[in-house]
């Protein structure tokens, strides 16, 4: 798992126009290969809904009414705010996802801060510090 995450991290660090198929394949491969059962016994927060499989690393903080899964990996020290929904996605370490955002088939890079709220995105890579929807549309990398 760690090796595949490192490879994905490396590729999303220097995205090119022709990386789309590679990213999509790596995401699918990771989710199908490394996720099977839930590993959700270590989060901080109340009672989110988990659709198997969901894998949480240590010190993940989760808000109210959050729906995670199926096929979600969340790296350590990340924070998911209220009403967020995430499926088929990899969230790397130390990521912040603001309220009521909906992510499907996404890769969110290490230390990314998605401060803006009420966004609904699919099939994309997001890396950086995003304070508004305008910021998001400037940096979002759609792979489908």
């Amino acid at each position: 798992m760690k090796k595949d995450l490192e490879e994905i991290q490396k590729i999303i660090g220097k995205l090119e126009l022709n990386s789309k198929t590679q990213i999509k394949d790596l995401l699918n491969y990771f989710l199908q290969t490394h996720l099977n059962r839930n590993k959700v016994d270590n989060f901080i927060g109340d009672y989110p809904t988990f659709i198997e499989p969901v894998h949480l690393e240590d010190n993940v903080r989760i808000g109210d009414d959050v729906l995670l899964g199926p096929n979600v990996y969340i790296g350590k020290d990340s924070e998911i705010k209220d009403y967020v929904e995430i499926s088929n996605s990899i969230i790397f370490d130390n990521v912040f996802i603001g309220k009521n955002n909906k992510l499907g088939n996404c890769i969110i890079g290490k230390n990314t801060s998605l401060v803006c709220e009420n966004i609904n995105v699919n099939n994309c890579v997001i890396v950086g510090n995003i304070k508004s929807k305008e910021d998001l549309y400037k940096i979002i990398y759609k792979f489908e």
Partner: peptide, 9 residues
């Protein structure tokens, strides 16, 4: 089998 844990629902 697939498990759904509904938390508070």
């Amino acid at each position: 089998t697939i498990q759904i844990n509904t938390g508070r629902e």
